[in-house]
């Protein structure tokens, strides 16, 4: 995989490129500032999800939470462009990007914090991979690793998207029902959709327990 340079990025983002092959990152409000050599700066959106841990015992990742459980566990906040969200040390907040992103089948991207924010102790993404064919706003996992609270504002250029040329995917179009496809605000983990795999491991465990000793 090779990193896509500025000139090629502009070409891929342009409306002259047919939409299916186009790299969509919209809106890019300041192309001169936001599009660098090999990466595109991305901004924070208005919606955040904060957790309320006091009313839940813990997370069972493969269990689908009911709307009530979700309501108990997390709260979605709308933060206006004039307002700030304070992230305190050790706090975990989900944020969304202002930009809607769509990668064609031959592009792959990584999302990372801009170093200026990282130097304040803020990390923005643990899951950095954006797969070919993805479309939607990215969910950022914001954690303050420093020891001082940090204020973030919607619209801040907080992260960057590094884009790579990749082999065209065998299944170029991701389905609208894909786990995080088409999301426009940060969303809860969808690990529960993979619960059948865990069930198979459990079945294997049970089978081994009752297997006759050799």
């Amino acid at each position: 995989m090779t990193v896509v340079g500025r000139e090629r990025l502009v070409e891929l983002l342009s409306d002259d490129t047919p939409v299916p092959e186009r790299l969509v990152v919209t809106p890019i409000l300041e192309p001169d500032i936001q599009i660098g050599d090999g990466c595109i700066d991305i901004r924070l959106g208005n919606c955040f999800v904060v957790t309320k841990s006091a009313r839940v015992g813990g997370i069972e990742p493969f269990k689908r939470p009911t709307p009530t459980e979700l309501e108990r566990y997390q709260e979605t906040l709308y933060v206006g462009f004039t307002q700030a969200l304070w992230i305190h040390p050790g706090t975990f907040v989900l944020g969304g990007t202002l930009e809607y992103i769509r990668l064609p089948s031959n592009l792959y991207a990584d999302v990372t914090a801009r170093s200026s924010w990282a130097r304040l102790g803020l990390s923005i993404a643990c899951a950095v991979a954006v797969h070919p064919g993805f479309y939607g706003c990215l969910t950022l996992e914001l954690v303050n690793n420093g020891n001082t609270p940090v204020a973030v504002h919607p619209g801040d250029r907080i992260g960057q998207l590094t884009v790579y040329e990749a082999e065209p995917a065998a299944r170029p179009e991701r389905k609208p029902s894909g786990k995080y496809q088409g999301q426009i605000i940060p969303s809860y983990s969808s690990l529960h959709k993979e619960s059948s795999e865990r069930e198979r491991w459990k079945a294997l465990g049970r089978a081994l327990r009752f297997a006759p000793k050799q």
Binding site: T17, P18, V19, T26, Q181
Partner: peptide, 15 residues
Amino acid sequence: EVLACCVPPGELGLD
């Protein structure tokens, strides 16, 4: 065209 690719038609590409 944009909608068919699951992209919000707020603006039609860069510039």
